[in-house]
Design a protein around this nucleic acid. Structure first.
Length: 478
DNA sequence: TTCGACACATAGCG
DNA sequence: CCGCTATGTGTCGA
């Protein structure tokens, strides 16, 4: 068989997503300019989207084709690891518990392990919720090890990856635009988000802004049009790829390396335009294998599967255990509160998701944590501006976004200003970057440092941008 | 052996 | 049928 076929076997076949009517292309079609509906939805939409909306089916994918929706195929996430302490700023100083939810698309199970190809895109839908739900009540945080509390000005989510068993070792992730090589790339950055359901926060949020970003990548990557991010309650980091494959992908079982994807919740405690993000929660995915491309691998794999081990493709295995079962992963530690490392960026969702067919089968067992599945109801957003917020926020508008995090530590990431170098150009040349913001970094180059970009760099206008605020939102329950 | 870059192939859409 | 977009994948060369 041709290679392709081989691949097929080895890989899940993702057919084009398109198969799915809904998600289809439309979402992206215009890519840069349009706003699709979706995925990262503003709260309201978000809500809908989840369950209902056609637009995004992220996880739901495929009703049509591939499998029943029920089968989801997403590597499960471990329970949340908290860093620091959150509490409401009410008289009782009520403790506030935050959790993050995430669903990772495009991984399939091979040999009982969640696997994906380094060259293929994967996406991760993130959302978080706070409990109890005290809408409008400001939240404050005490960094781990710290003694005082700081007002939380906004929440944000991001994703990162680490080596299993050595969680201090970060695995770089890169995000592309639909232009792929022709466009800029950057590491996933912290995306400001409002809490779902239980939520809270400080709320500011504007209703009007429901604008949703049309893309999953930083506005700066785009010519001016932009949309803003509004009051989103969930965000999909799309077109993400691991920069490196795990060692020994599948070949010898001897030392197979695994990665863990981390879904992180951050809080910004800076009232200024210079965000000061601290990670408060993260959830580690099950062990992941990222296959490289060497032909050998594929072959090995295949044979492998046939041989004794399992089939690569679809098998349902037992993955019942979500997390990885047998092998342990190390414990992750990550610094608690430090500044973070990620940069922020944005991306939007919509897109296509494909379904991997094969996986379905397994999914049942392996599936994810339940979190995601449920629909939520929608709520509306309110606009609210509690006084609490200091004025720091801008509510919306135009302004720009602040920049990414610039923390000292984050420095590394901060490449922010970077530009899009090389590749980016073409279409992106015109992009106007917002002034304040750093331009996204796109590094095609590499990034060894992650840039910090900010969220939207939008250029102007259009409004949107609520980013800043954390609103309250409401929605669903998960 | 793995990866970047380039190029081709395929799907859905118009 | 043609062309475009987005993305999977083949391939070469480093």
């Amino acid at each position: 068989m041709s290679t392709r076929e081989q691949y097929a076997h080895a890989t899940p076949s993702f057919r084009r997503q398109s198969e799915h009517p809904t998600r289809s292309s439309s979402s992206y079609g215009g890519a840069h300019f349009r706003r699709p509906q979706v995925s990262n939805s503003p709260s309201s939409s978000a809500v809908v989207s989840y369950g209902t909306i056609p637009g995004n089916t992220n996880r739901m994918d495929s009703p049509s084709r591939a499998g029943p929706a029920s089968e989801k195929t997403s590597p499960p996430l471990e329970g949340p690891t908290h860093f620091g302490e959150l509490r409401y700023q009410d008289t009782a100083k009520t403790a506030c518990h935050a959790t993050i939810n995430g669903s990772i698309d495009k991984f399939f199970i091979a040999d009982d392990r969640w696997t994906c190809y380094r060259r293929n895109y994967f996406s991760c839908v993130c959302s978080f919720s706070l409990g109890p739900y005290f809408p409008g009540t400001p939240v404050e945080v005490k960094p781990a090890g710290g003694q005082s509390f700081f007002l939380v000005h906004q929440f944000g989510v991001s994703i990162s990856a680490v080596v299993a068993g050595n969680e201090q070792q970060v695995v770089e992730l890169v995000q592309h635009t639909p232009k792929r090589d022709k466009g800029p790339t950057a590491p996933p950055s912290i995306m400001p988000l409002m809490a779902k359901q239980d939520v809270i926060n400080l709320g500011y949020f504007n209703l009007e802004d429901s604008s949703i970003p049309a893309r999953n990548y930083p506005d700066a990557w785009v010519p001016s049009e932009a949309g803003g991010i509004g009051t989103l309650t969930e965000w999909t980091f799309e077109r993400i790829q691991f920069k490196q494959a795990t060692q020994n992908n599948g070949k010898r079982r001897a030392q197979q390396q695994f990665y863990h994807l981390l879904v992180e919740l951050w809080v910004n405690i800076s009232p200024s335009n210079n965000p000061d993000w601290h990670k408060v929660v993260h959830r580690k995915s099950a062990q992941l294998i990222v296959r490289g491309r060497s032909p050998g691998h594929y072959q090995t794999e295949r044979s492998h599967s046939r041989d004794g081990t399992r089939n690569t493709d679809n098998q349902p295995a037992i993955y019942g255990a979500p997390m990885g079962g047998p092998r342990g992963y190390g414990g992750a530690q990550i610094h608690s509160f430090g500044s973070y490392d990620a940069s922020h960026g944005l991306y939007d969702p919509n897109q296509r998701h494909h379904q991997q067919q094969q996986h379905h089968a397994l999914s049942r067992e392996a599936m994810l944590p339940a979190e995601e599945e449920k629909p939520m109801d929608v709520a509306k957003h309110y606009t609210y501006y509690p006084g609490a917020m200091d004025g720091s926020y801008q509510s919306h508008n135009t302004t720009e976004p602040w920049v990414g995090h610039h923390d000292p530590e984050s420095v590394s990431h901060m490449i922010a200003g970077v530009d899009i170098n090389s590749k980016v150009k073409h279409e992106y040349e015109n992009i106007t970057l917002p002034r304040l913001v750093h331009p996204p970094s796109l590094s095609n180059n590499n990034d060894q440092n992650r840039p910090c970009r900010t969220f939207y760099g939008r250029s102007s206008s259009n409004g949107s941008y609520p980013q800043l605020l954390s609103p309250t939102s409401v929605n669903m329950s998960l």
